[in-house]
Design a protein around this nucleic acid. Structure first.
Lengths: 125, 125
DNA sequence: CCCTTGACCTGGAGTGACTCCAATACGTTA
DNA sequence: TAACGTATTGGAGTCACTCCAGGTCAAGGG
């Protein structure tokens, strides 16, 4: 399929897909007679995985390591799988930390909002 | 106080404080005879507020509007307070959305992690 | 008196992860 | 033949910092 469909299916923009290809995060994408990219179903699955990692905010350097491991000749060896698992686990920890931060921020914001609403409500008192 | 102490108290780096000043997000900071910034307690309170907004990921444009309202001559008027309240409420909504996204991402990550751990555990079977 | 140290100053370049744009190419439709 | 739609490329722009080179100034040490 062409880049428009790959984009629609993976949720990544066409620009982001091209950017990921430039950054060596994809297996080589074949080209048709016109020089247009021709994505396989596997390619789209990989793009979808990258999209999920991206939404979680995993740094591109980590995504690159993940990609390198997944595209290595021995990608399915226990060692490579352990490498990828370690990346995912480390990232899960940063997400947990971010959630904690988000909690604090929400509490702060709600506190501030309450101060403002209280003040505005009693402006005639 | 000087910038080092303002930085320590507010949690912002010295570079970020200078950047915020350049970007007109602070009330004018007085300078001593040497030309060094001299922060008042009020200045530091304001920096601390900005740090909280920053950690929540409020876009700088919004923070600038917030700052403009807080430093307006009629900053304490109901209209200006309502302006700031609206900014905070809008931001609280984006935080709620981000939390929802984070939930989905954590679920996805945990799912992936489980797949890997299961596969590695049974590698000898 | 000079030298070093340390805290600060400035303008400007670099970073990460895209995102947008101009110029170009090619096949199809009117 | 011209316009249209879909793609290509390299490179510039964006956001929110972050870092750096080169400089000033006051105090302390030899």
């Amino acid at each position: 399929m062409r880049i428009a469909e790959a984009s629609a299916r993976s949720g990544l923009t066409q620009d982001t897909i091209r950017f990921y290809e430039k950054s060596h995060m994809l297996a080589p994408i074949t080209r048709d007679a016109r020089g247009w990219r021709d994505f396989s179903a596997d390619d789209v699955n990989w793009l979808t995985t990258l999209e999920r990692l991206r939404v979680t905010g995993m740094p591109l350097d980590d995504v690159k390591h993940f990609a390198a491991s997944a595209h290595a000749p021995d990608a399915d060896s226990p060692a490579q799988q352990a490498t990828r698992l370690a990346l995912l686990q480390a990232h899960a920890e940063t997400l947990a930390a971010r959630r904690a931060e988000l909690d604090i921020c929400e509490a702060y914001l709600n506190h501030k909002i309450k101060i403002y609403t209280d003040r505005l409500e009693t402006k005639d008192g």
